[in-house]
Simulated scan of single mutants.
Amino acid sequence: MPPQPSTQSSIELLAQVPVFEALAPVDLGRVADVAVPRHFTGNTVIFREGDASDTCYIVGRGHARAVRENVDGRTITLAHFGPGDIFGELAMFDDEKRSATIETLDDVEAIAILGQDMRRLLREHPDIAVKLVIGLGRRLREANERLARQSFQTVQSRVAGVLGQLVRQAQSEGAGERDVLVTITQADIAQLAGSSRESASRFLAVLERAGVVTQGRGRVTVHEPSALERYVY
């Protein structure tokens, strides 16, 4: 059984989350007090699209992804999550149905915050609510800016940007400056970049011929992360 995170380690994890970045240490401590450690094995569904929304999660270790099923039965990947990422955060404010399915890619250790506990905390400390709104507003602006940039980018630029983001995540978890292994499929890369799989595959082949990456089954090794910047504009 994995070790239980201490309150201090929960505070340190919460401090990495952009939604909570405006909170003072004492406020982070109050949130940590209502957080519960959770462990999920790989290839596990944490919650499904349409489920009741009652808990949000912050990843401490491991990786997960958000997917939605299209009306034609295809599964579309919306986002990947790693240490310091939050998902299901709207459960802190309401109990609407889940808008996506979250499934683990490997073993995941996380802390969970029940929506009712968070809402009680917000009633008792209204200043935390104000700071959370500030954090959510910043995240929304960043998402809007990212969407605006992507609308003007080529497929190559978007794919290179997605790879760069995944490399930075891997490096934050201890990967080196070169030969960074990213565990992801071509289909997921394409969906995250908002392109067809065929277009993403063609560009990945270009990167492979240039010696920037090596592809394997469900993984990409980025040999020269800095070279990706040449394709992002």
Rank of each mutant, 00 (worst) to 15 (best):
A190C: 04
I46A: 00
V71T: 13
Q215F: 00
F81V: 07
D106R: 00
R138K: 14
E173W: 13
G62F: 15
D51M: 07
E109F: 08
Q156W: 08
G82L: 10
E69M: 14
A193M: 02
V31C: 02
V162C: 10
V162T: 13
I86W: 12
E69V: 11
N70T: 14
A79F: 05
V31H: 04
T77S: 12
F20D: 11
E142L: 15
V130Y: 07
Q8F: 07
S195M: 07
R48E: 10
S172N: 13
V108M: 01
A91G: 09
L90Y: 13
S195D: 13
A170C: 11
A129G: 09
E177R: 12
I76Q: 14
P18E: 09
G161S: 13
L114Y: 07
I184L: 03
S196F: 10
I11K: 05
G82C: 07
V213N: 00
A22P: 04
R48W: 01
L114T: 07
T75L: 10
P37A: 10
V167S: 03
A52R: 09
E96L: 14
R230G: 12
I102P: 03
M92K: 08
S99K: 12
G88Q: 11
D95M: 04
N43F: 06
I189T: 06
V167L: 05
S226W: 04
Q4D: 13
P5L: 03
L122H: 08
F47I: 04
R123Q: 13
S172M: 10
V155S: 14
Q116M: 08
T41W: 04
R74G: 14
I58R: 09
I189F: 05
A112F: 12
R217W: 10
A200F: 00
K131W: 00
E229F: 11
D33S: 10
R119H: 05
N70K: 15
N43W: 00
T185R: 08
L166N: 12
